[in-house]
Nucleic acid binder design. Sequence first.
DNA 1: CATGAATGAGAATTCATTCAT
DNA 2: GATGAATGAATTCTCATTCAT
Lengths: 188, 188, 188, 188
Amino acid sequence: MTRKEEIIRAARKCMREKGFHNTSVQNIAREAGVSTGLIYRYYKTKAEIIEILIIDAVDNLKELLNESQNKIDIFSPGLVFAEKRSFIDDAQESISLLLDVSAEARRNPCYQPLFTAAYEELKDNIYQREAEQHPDISESTLRTRLYFSSLLIDGLVIRRLRLGEQSNNEADKIAMLFLNAITASQNP
Amino acid sequence: MTRKEEIIRAARKCMREKGFHNTSVQNIAREAGVSTGLIYRYYKTKAEIIEILIIDAVDNLKELLNESQNKIDIFSPGLVFAEKRSFIDDAQESISLLLDVSAEARRNPCYQPLFTAAYEELKDNIYQREAEQHPDISESTLRTRLYFSSLLIDGLVIRRLRLGEQSNNEADKIAMLFLNAITASQNP
Amino acid sequence: MTRKEEIIRAARKCMREKGFHNTSVQNIAREAGVSTGLIYRYYKTKAEIIEILIIDAVDNLKELLNESQNKIDIFSPGLVFAEKRSFIDDAQESISLLLDVSAEARRNPCYQPLFTAAYEELKDNIYQREAEQHPDISESTLRTRLYFSSLLIDGLVIRRLRLGEQSNNEADKIAMLFLNAITASQNP
Amino acid sequence: MTRKEEIIRAARKCMREKGFHNTSVQNIAREAGVSTGLIYRYYKTKAEIIEILIIDAVDNLKELLNESQNKIDIFSPGLVFAEKRSFIDDAQESISLLLDVSAEARRNPCYQPLFTAAYEELKDNIYQREAEQHPDISESTLRTRLYFSSLLIDGLVIRRLRLGEQSNNEADKIAMLFLNAITASQNP
DNA sequence: CATGAATGAGAATTCATTCAT
DNA sequence: GATGAATGAATTCTCATTCAT
């Protein structure tokens, strides 16, 4: 792993543990085991590091979606819950970073466009794959499903962030509702 | 309005406009039209102000739910979309504050228990009222519905925060899905 | 003397002793006997302090010129040297600050306009008074004289800055040249 | 051009463009196309580089004077203006570096003696040549002329640095005054 | 009660200098 | 000789908190 990667890794770890605003560049340096100045050899500003973390999170989500697609159709009614559950587990880390940053992104003109673009890209990426797999379903229906699912996923992640890792039995029920809701709306 | 309340109101306005971390105690004082020192006569620390803001947000959500209940059953399948829409509008402000703060609350041991407690209280509060109105529905089903709805509401709020006030026609469709999903799961 | 004035005085002292770039805000604070943070209560940035120092220097030059005018005409051929000498002594401090800053002002877009404006103002100020005293001399001649004198004065100040307080006997000769040159060019 | 010379040339370019304090050793290395470390193989410190730049500037002035002497006597009353003008153009670069550095040189004990010595050497150098060409004029008169001229040249250079390349028609008039002043004082 | 001046620790960032390769 | 990664002290600026008046 290169120095540059080590620094990003350290930054990600700190941000995850202490949050975006409570992570100083010194913290990152200490975590990476390097001097403060070295951070700036590889990254122009702290904001650049955060940008990269955001982009990485989006890329990670895209990859996870691609992987899961190879095995399952995320909208398939018969999907075993466990598989969706594991997808959410893997995605949680990335989504939680996006959430941490979203309060800032909403107001800081430096992150705002990046943030919106990342979301659009992610949405298009998911839509493309769904469209290929369901040529018979109208675009409007597909987009609605995506929207609906993303609401639920965001909601799930927020809930986890807020409450920690409780409420697993509830999650089971939700998973069923999730699937049912999607399929119920399939042939209106 | 007392001095103490004015300060909280100023704090809420600042936090909403500039975010939690970008609001200084001096900002609040200026907005409230009082001196910096006075803030500390009424509130021990900045953290205490934030705690109160969180509690207020939760109280506000409870009130909104009580009001809406007087007119409508939030889970009624026949509910006109506009009414649910307006509930979300009113609740948005409180939920968005909770979101802004949630990144912090997850890690800061000073907010964390407060946060969890508030959520539990809110959940129980909603459950009580639903149970009174639907004595025929099992507790488990009711709780699942609540959970499901809260996920959707959180998701909607996040989406609004992230994207601003776009996508209204999509919101229409979502509203239908929202209702359909809830009712579809009602009589399995 | 107000705190604000004390800080400017401390800043002026530091800048004079150690130069513009070698004076840190901490230096100024220590010299003024206050904390670092207090500097920023009264002045937005270090650059603002420097701007004020520049403006003060120009104002000081204007005042010195006004004072000297009450007693003498700076271009009068019969002027005793001592009086011009003392004018230069008094002006030196202000001019030396302007010189210190001029290397920066040439390139820093934040000081550049301020600097040019100050110079224009000073030039106009001097011209006005000369024109009143010499209604018979053409504007062109007056302006040329001023230009010529300012070159000499700048040259004198630079020389002092470079060499310290040496070469007094030479200064005598120069003073005569100065006067002769001006008067020689008076009636061509 | 040796590596060592390339570095000095790069240093001069950077200092000229960005000023003395805003030029970092890294800047110089980049401009010279070498590594940071190499700078320190040839020069002990950044201060040493600046010393050399000062010495070079003085040498350059000496050379310019020697060249101009071959064609013209700088104090000759009949000298066409254009020739003096071009001398000032050529000398400007060196003089402006000396000015940039002078604020520092005044206070930094490391530059100060160097600076004074360089000036003395330059002055003697000019005096020698003038004395050879004007055996009839007394030493005192020659020295006074030199002093007077140097004041004017310094003044001209400062003015250019401050105002850029404006005021050419004024410069014409000044040139005449310059010559007149010198010659007027020649036979008192 | 109320003020707002004052504090000082801490944040982001820069840069002269060193040193292992 | 040559590289450029690495260091860490210094700089500008912010802000929660205190306290004399």
